[in-house]
Design a protein around this nucleic acid. Structure first.
Lengths: 174, 174
DNA sequence: GAGCCCATGTAATAAGTTACATGATTGT
DNA sequence: ACAATCATGTAACTTATTACATGGGCTC
């Protein structure tokens, strides 16, 4: 039920069509939550039926602009303050690391080192993202700033861990 | 297709029944990957049909002990060294943070602070886990150690971020 | 009028969760 | 005998992915 709240959140910020939302999922939200086009249109239908959003305007090409309703905004706020159950951890990378004993130490080391490199690329990407955002436009980006900072710290942590782990694999055995 | 590899990895370490594997998912793997009982038995059936694993013994109560086959081990090794596509980011917490402008600053601050507290509890949990493991029993836990270290660093990062973010919300506005 | 973007939808499949259903064996 | 644990499986439902399908409107 989280896609639902992601959509509500975007529509709470400003009304938009499915197509508009899709673009926002692919840009601003790309590092936080993702949705496919197919999923999005389905969810918009359900949300409208549940009267959490409504069609507020229609445009060319069958465009339907949705807005959040009062009920929807209440639902969003309730969800926002609910810490919810802690998420099921599921990291494909960590799973691989856990089983790395199945391959040679050299291969294991390479795997971890490559993971560190990909974290470095993520860090770079976030740096350039940060540079490209106009942080003065205030309100909408205040909390986006916190999310970006989280990403930067996460990427840094991954890099440091990979460096540490690579070294550790080197020294534990030949 | 990752549950498949998690199962192969566990069976590569040692043979076991569905029931045995379930317990391993609930303990050792709990912080890395999760599977429900239902999913597990289904996957075991598929893996057997694909001849990546085989029934190596039968016991009381219809117990079937599975072992990995050579084909299965090869498949596991191939997967282990494949970095794979970077995972779709999906963090419910970060999604909430992103939309925190919908509630009052005081509520937003509380939310972030509580998140920090839950990260602190995770850190404690991992510390006690670390203390409870016999790190001398060598082979099987060598890479498990790297995974645990990742968890500790992750928990620390979350706590630091939450502290920073809480402070920032405090100072940015009243 | 050609090509690009806007715009919405459906179908098939895969993956995951919860609940239901059943029963044998072991230890006390 | 009773309870706890071992042990496997199925059904219904939800969520997410990929692919298919269609067409309008805008700009050059």
């Amino acid at each position: 039920m989280t896609l639902r709240h992601a959509v509500l959140g975007l529509l709470a910020d400003s009304p938009g069509s499915g197509y508009d939302l899709l673009k926002r999922f692919q840009t601003a939200m790309a590092n936080v939550w993702s949705a496919t086009q197919s999923q999005l249109y389905g969810e918009l239908g359900k949300l409208e039926k549940a009267e959490l959003i409504k069609v507020s305007a229609e445009g060319p090409r069958g465009r339907k602009e949705y807005s959040i309703t009062d009920t929807g905004r209440t639902e969003l706020q309730t969800w926002l303050l609910d810490p919810g159950p802690s998420p099921v951890p599921r990291s494909e990378t960590l799973l691989r690391v856990y089983f790395l004993g199945e391959v040679s130490p050299a291969q294991a080391r390479d795997y971890v080192a490559r993971h560190g490199e990909s974290a470095a690329r993520l860090a770079e990407h976030l740096e350039s993202l940060e540079a490209s955002i106009d942080w003065d436009d205030a309100d909408s980006s205040r909390y986006g700033r916190l999310v970006l900072e989280w990403g930067k710290r996460y990427a840094a942590m991954e890099q440091e861990w990979a460096t540490w782990a690579t070294e550790r694999i080197r020294t534990t055995r030949g």
